[in-house]
């Protein structure tokens, strides 16, 4: 696996840390540490933090878990490489779009910004760039 593959694993690992923290604080019923704005508690207690009872943070956790696993799966099962590269890009771009929707909710519906969610959106944007580059390189080859 090349450096870009490891970068994908590292970024997804960072996302796992963020979403993992938000998932744990959700289930413990605690407001995430958020600095002076207290936006995280407001966002986390809003109905937008769940989809039919499933915390959005848990969905994020699964999303990052898949993105972290894909390069490792490519390494283990080389025939899956092309599918994993394109699948990773589709997933990351989809995640970026959904993050944009969640950020819009924070700014214009909930009127509170959760910095953990912003950090996650930045990680997703970087992951989209990395997965795009990897898919592009594979198609060139």
């Amino acid at each position: 696996m090349d450096a870009w593959g490891w970068l994908q694993v590292a970024l997804a690992g960072l996302g796992l840390g963020i979403s993992g923290y938000l998932t744990v604080s959700h289930y413990l019923g605690q407001a995430p540490v958020c600095g002076p704005s207290h936006g995280c508690a407001i966002v986390q207690s809003s109905p937008y933090a769940q989809l039919w009872g499933v915390p959005v943070a848990l969905l994020g956790l699964l999303f990052y878990l898949v993105l972290a696993s894909l390069p490792l799966a490519e390494r283990r099962w080389p025939p899956l490489k092309d599918g994993a590269l394109m699948g990773g890009f589709v997933l990351a771009l989809g995640g970026l779009g959904f993050s944009a929707y969640l950020t819009w909710l924070e700014l214009f519906v909930i009127y509170a910004v959760c910095w953990w969610c912003v950090a996650s959106a930045v990680v997703v944007a970087l992951l989209t760039g990395v997965t795009l580059r990897r898919a592009w390189r594979a198609l060139e080859g």
Binding site: M86, V90, L93, Y101, W136
Partner: peptide
């Protein structure tokens, strides 16, 4: 890549 972007748009 166009197909992948299209799929991502549908996913979102």
């Amino acid at each position: 890549l166009g197909g992948a972007v299209g799929l991502a748009v549908v996913l979102v």
